[in-house]
Design a protein around this nucleic acid. Structure first.
Lengths: 236, 236
DNA sequence: CGCCAGATTGATACACATCAATTCTCGTGG
DNA sequence: CCACGAGAATTGATGTGTATCAATCTGGCG
């Protein structure tokens, strides 16, 4: 029962290329002191960055592209815990092993920090330690929001919350009628929201029929009436 | 749709009594250096220790009893993120506000630490900072496991996982035929597992009919065939 | 002894999953 | 430039796991 039809994760190991060390300047925003510690690594779409259970020897930051954090059961059911985009940190656990896998949703470049070097750096610069604390607190908060979504919300509410989350995390084109580029396919969305591909598709079509959203392409969603979406998403 | 029948949280504010400062010795286990920072506070069953959105001015540790962390929607749907028992820390966020409420499942005593004093103490003793990091990492891991449970598991699998979790966290009476005292009622279990009271009840009755568990009372569960339970719980 | 909240059980409804075709999209090669 | 093929997305028909609605049962307590 509830067996997923497709193989949940066709991701395979191994990075694509290693681009030595990066200059200390961040691509767009502010320069990040972390950057002088890291090395840029690229992963092709659907490659695994690390596996659940791997020794947690590195921490990461997304430089470009989208990363998903997920867990898969023996029988192929998959739950995605988060999607991460440029600037987001992941794999910053203090435990010995990663408790979920990280995979490239699109071609991605990540900054990879050796745990040992980060430790040192934290000793020298306590503000970094604080930053990690804030990071984990934030991630824990998101996870708890996600629990409410998975445990208690309807399909329509889940989709609405998801879309609104994406807009909020986007640089954002003002207000009236934001446009979202989905980096992930419907299966990924379904596995993030605890639904099936068909339900995601049907629910989005229903929103379209109601004039709440529109599609330029399957991966391009336009919010026509974000207030209607917000009403749907409601929840605390 | 999916509206919960009963009012989700009848918890009300205000602690019961304040027992000045505690001695520096932990009740049973090892002495905890934290204890010299804290004050013991008691809460009656169903009282709220803090609300989601309250300013996060304190961190806590459970001394005795059971605490639940939860979120409630406007229309009364509730999701419980965790149950905490003696020795468990909660409310250790680095953010300005708590992102979930903490409530007393039974009469509880908690140790309450002022955030400011903890900050100081961390400066003096970095190992405490590390401990908080480990705590948050662990909680994040649990939350991710919980996501998989809520997003992708059947009622039977959720119940099985839940019961096994409880046994593992218990001092534990050897192996063959552990006995669990549920501190929480069926509604709490349902809200933790993303189910209804009826489904929890029916699923547990089914397990009983199969001889996998047995009840001395509704709140006393005995694991007759924990291997059968483990087979049910499976998942990574 | 009777009340009442919590738990269980039963009957039924429905949201979403499953199974099964289309239809769309886009890269590739003729 | 357009036909072709393959994977992704959508749509349709149907099934089912769990919610909902509704008693009934149980155990603690005044």
């Amino acid at each position: 029962m509830y067996a997923m039809t497709n193989s949940a994760s066709t991701a395979t190991r191994a990075p694509l290329e290693i681009r030595s060390r990066t200059a200390s300047l961040a691509p767009a925003g502010e320069a990040d002191p972390l950057d002088r510690l890291g090395a840029a690594v690229k992963f092709e779409k659907n490659r695994t960055i690390y596996f659940e259970g791997d020794e947690a020897a590195h921490h990461f930051k997304v430089r470009s592209g989208t990363v998903r954090l997920c867990k898969v059961t023996e029988d192929g059911r998959r739950q995605i815990a988060a999607f991460l985009t440029a600037g987001d940190l992941f794999g910053w656990t203090d435990l010995e092993f990663y408790n979920f896998s990280a995979e490239a949703v699109s071609d991605v470049t990540v900054e990879k920090y050796s745990r040992a070097r980060v430790e040192e750096s934290v000793k020298a610069n306590p503000s970094l330690g604080r930053r990690v604390l804030t990071l984990l607190s934030t991630q824990l908060g998101s996870a708890h929001d996600h629990l409410l979504l998975l445990g208690r919300m309807t399909a329509a509410e889940r989709i609405a919350s998801f879309l609104l989350d994406l807009v909020r995390r986007q640089p954002g084109t003002g207000q009236g009628g934001a446009s979202i580029e989905l980096a992930m396919n419907r299966k990924d969305v379904a596995d993030y929201l605890g639904l099936t591909v068909e339900t995601v598709s049907r629910t989005m079509s229903a929103l379209k029929r109601k004039g709440i959203i529109a599609f330029a392409a399957p991966e391009n969603v336009q919010l026509k009436q974000s207030t209607a979406l917000e009403r749907l998403a409601m929840a605390a």
